[in-house]
């Protein structure tokens, strides 16, 4: 829990912190890229056959040799690795062999769809979680909310996705079954990701929330006659937000991973589907490009989380007000 241990850093340290973060980010990216390279070279299997259209085709030996040469697959591994890192360092992600286009173009085409889904899932999850903890007042309602949250948190996303697709997409036809067009097509995939995540977030935040409700400043506010819902929303919630925020950085990473299956089920375009195709064809440049993309999203999410911490941290606010 990085952020928890540094609750009270002064603002002057932020610049240094950012510099360190950046250095760390570069290291993480480098390691992820090397791991991706190693993983695909450890895996037996000749990408050339996949490039040439699979096993039912009849490429001539000359065609195979030409393809191997074109992608540098005929060079020693160490040379391939050196070239690969040098190319990455110059900002070139390379050419995907299976998609016949630059990896950067693939990411540019598929990234927004995945990012949109992730963002809407994260927002919806937060909305569900906050609604649940703020408005579940009273012993019985709270117990009920707790049980529901646990249940939601335990739902497998893809199972939920299939059931939602069946009920709302096929049977009731409320939402379009296939999903790249318009906001409405975003609803079912978002819900499938957001409901379990929302349950999880709520479970994590509820404990701090309940603790905060017994803090002295809440009692003072109550004594002042502030309405209960306002107290919950304005004062107690701030405390509950912290664990939720730190969890969100993790959630963003998890969303990309779970997104693969969700994108497949709803026939949505996106990075996840592209990753699946790339992995199946051992398309090294594309796989490592996507891993770098995920790493970058994860790093940015971490930075955003830390920034939010500063904004939200009740102690900082408390000392100022």
């Amino acid at each position: 829990m990085t952020a928890l241990s540094r609750r009270t850093w002064p603002f002057g340290l932020i610049a240094r912190k950012i510099a360190r973060r950046l250095a760390n980010a570069v290291l993480v990216l480098l390691a992820a890229a090397s791991l991706a390279f190693a993983a695909l070279h450890l895996t037996p299997g000749d990408p050339v056959t996949a490039i040439l259209g699979g096993g039912t085709q009849t490429p001539s030996p000359e065609t195979i040799a030409a393809a191997r040469h074109e992608y540098g697959l005929d060079r020693p591994i160490s040379v391939q690795f050196g070239l690969y890192i040098a190319r990455l360092a110059s900002g070139n992600l390379g050419q995907s062999f299976s998609q016949h286009m630059p990896v950067a173009d693939v990411l540019r085409a598929q990234g927004p769809a995945t990012l949109a889904l992730m963002a809407s899932a994260l927002l919806t999850a937060w909305l569900l979680a906050v609604l649940s903890i703020v408005f579940a007042v009273g012993r019985r309602t709270t117990a009920f909310a707790r049980t529901t949250e646990t249940f939601f948190a335990g739902l497998p996303q893809f199972w939920l996705a299939i059931l939602l697709l069946w009920a709302l997409g096929f049977e009731l036809q409320i939402f379009p079954p296939a999903g790249n067009r318009g906001l409405r097509s975003l609803v079912l995939p978002t819900l499938s990701l957001a409901i379990p995540l929302g349950g999880f977030l709520a479970r994590v935040m509820r404990d701090s929330f309940d603790l905060a409700l017994h803090e002295p400043f809440i009692l003072t506010a109550r004594a002042r006659g502030t309405p209960e819902w306002l107290i919950r929303l304005r004062h107690a919630l701030r405390h509950a937000l912290l664990p939720g925020i730190s969890l969100s950085a993790w959630a963003v990473g998890a969303l990309v991973g779970n997104g693969v299956v969700i994108e497949m089920i709803f026939s949505r375009r996106g990075i996840g589907r592209e990753l699946f195709l790339a992995v199946m064809t051992h398309d090294m440049p594309l796989v490592s490009g996507i891993i770098l993309f995920i790493a970058l999203v994860y790093i940015l999410a971490g930075i955003a989380t830390d920034a939010l911490y500063v904004v939200v941290d009740p102690r900082l606010k408390a000392t100022r007000s």
């Binding site: 993480v28 992820a32 791991l35 991706a36 895996t43 693969v260 990753l275 994860y298």
Partner: peptide
């Protein structure tokens, strides 16, 4: 931990 988070399970499964 950061590196592990960035590495998709799918790639591991393939490996």
């Amino acid at each position: 931990i950061d590196v592990m988070f960035a590495f998709p399970v799918l790639v591991l499964a393939l490996l």
